[in-house]
């Protein structure tokens, strides 16, 4: 649960945190993020030793493991450049989760982890609220349904995504019903609670399809991976992609 009120580093030289999900499954999203940031005038560095933000262990309550991963991430992303992430969820880990898991840890144990919270941005949030971009070029004639990921609650991401996508000529944004409801993924939650998770995702898909969109867009691939995984199984898959992929496509 990132909050917009945090003062964070802004620079046109940035570090990209690709996220483990894009590293493993969604190379296209990471590529689009690079292209979009470059189109916005940024020079993008991609630290090679990056792995994961540690959220899977953190959510499992294994703070000992997730702290180690956070410390590794802090080491890999040292310096003072903004850290741009194509995921509201991983961004929330830096902006909020680390604070929680290091709550009672001594300062020296945090090894730069605190600095992550002052520099991390979800990519759309950064483009709009960091760099001040409010319009995006290109034309795409599409009806786009937006799924807000849970970890962007209270952050600038939702508004930023709508500002950018809505400014592309031809794009019609569609708000889906009961938007506050989770897609049912929740990482290991969907493994421990498969029945409940499937129920949650199915309700979400009902709401999405009710709007008859051409595509489903989100700022988190984890939600989309889950929703598409269910939709394919239910034979009602629809095109889905990350917001930066739409922005990259609009660039031509």
């Amino acid at each position: 649960m990132a909050t917009q009120s945090i003062e964070r580093a802004v620079n046109t030289e940035v570090q990209l945190m690709m996220t483990c999900l894009c590293d493993a499954f969604y190379a296209g999203v990471a590529e689009a993020t690079v292209r979009v940031l470059e189109a916005a005038g940024c020079r993008v560095h991609v630290p090679e030793d990056q792995t994961c933000c540690g959220q899977p262990a953190f959510n499992g309550g294994d703070f000992e493991s997730s702290r180690k991963i956070a410390q590794h991430t802090a080491k890999v992303f040292s310096g003072d450049l903004p850290i741009i992430v194509p995921s509201g969820s991983c961004a929330a880990m830096h902006l909020h989760g680390n604070g929680l898991q290091f709550e009672n840890a001594p300062d020296e144990g945090q090894m730069g982890v605190r600095s992550l919270a002052k520099r991390t941005w979800e990519v759309c949030d950064f483009l709009v609220h960091g760099l001040g971009k409010t319009t995006w070029p290109g034309r795409l004639d599409r009806r786009v349904a937006i799924h807000d990921s849970c970890h962007t609650r209270g952050s600038g991401t939702g508004a930023a995504m709508r500002t950018l996508l809505g400014s592309i000529a031809g794009v019609e944004l569609l708000e889906i019903g009961q938007a506050e409801q989770c897609c049912g993924f929740g990482g290991t939650f969907s493994v421990t609670f498969p029945h409940i998770s499937t129920g949650m995702g199915t309700l979400k898909l009902d709401e999405v399809h009710a709007k008859r969109p051409d595509m489903l867009v989100s700022g988190d691939m984890s939600c989309l991976m889950h929703l598409n995984g269910l939709a394919e199984n239910q034979e009602r898959a629809l095109p889905h992609c990350h917001a930066v992929e739409v922005l990259a496509e609009a660039l031509g």
Binding site: A24, F25, Y26, S190, V191, P194, G229
Partner: peptide
């Protein structure tokens, strides 16, 4: 647990290292 998960869901293609 993985089998149960995959009972209701497909997984995307693994593209590790592509980016």
């Amino acid at each position: 647990p993985l089998r149960d998960w995959l009972g209701d869901r497909t997984l995307p293609k693994w593209r590790g290292g592509d980016f």
